[in-house]
Amino acid sequence: MADAKWGMVIDVDKCTGCQACVVACQSENNVPINTEDIFNQRRAIEWIRVERYWEGEFPDVKARFIPVLCQHCDDAPCEPVCPVFATYHNNEGMNVQIYNRCIGTRFCANNCPYHVRYFNFWEPEWPDTLTHQLNPDVTVRSRGIMEKCTFCVQRIRRTSREADRDGREIEDGARELSPACVNSCPTSALVWGDFNNKNSKVSNLAEKEMSHNGSHHGRGYKMMENLGTSPNVIYLKKIDKHAKETVAHE
């Protein structure tokens, strides 16, 4: 899988804000339970979160949803600032976070324009019985370290290893490979795959929706592209029949 470049295409026009991805992620990745106190302290951890923005006043009011997760930027601002290489870009196009290396300077979190890095302010706690649910493939993070979306790298590892063992090919969009959020999304707003595979769904979407040589002929945009982070997550613009066209990067 070393020649892959994983990425996601998120169709904002399909996202209903149902939060299925949020729980799917928490369940897969042993994200600690966000208690009421943790919300009040503004330390809740949601590797993928759904943001809601208001527009207008009653009765002409719109609420718009957008799922935000680690953009796995090619030029990630978080990577150069980590003093110990706890976060870096790997050869699969992913921005990875190595928990055991992390010392918790929180420099990366400050420098992330997408606010998708989360810090473990407390030791995560589960009641005894709930620990049976924890995914053994994912490290339970201790306090004092950063964590963030990994594109469910544990699934990539397990699936490619088992495919190697059994000598089979992995199809594009295979469920055992896809991140938990993508599998859960009821409206298929999230599509995930390999940008290096020219036949993958994400490549086709990128080809169709992104601008090429300056001609913009689709809905594709990258979030806050003006910062030069070159994310590996492509968003497809929300369609509002009453809206005037706006451009993501001014």
Binding site: R52, Y53, E55, R64, K237, K238, I239, K241, E245, A248
Partner: peptide, 14 residues
Amino acid sequence: SEDTHRKIIPLTNG
């Protein structure tokens, strides 16, 4: 919370 500059959710009229 309003995405004033449309940097988060740009719109298109299709």
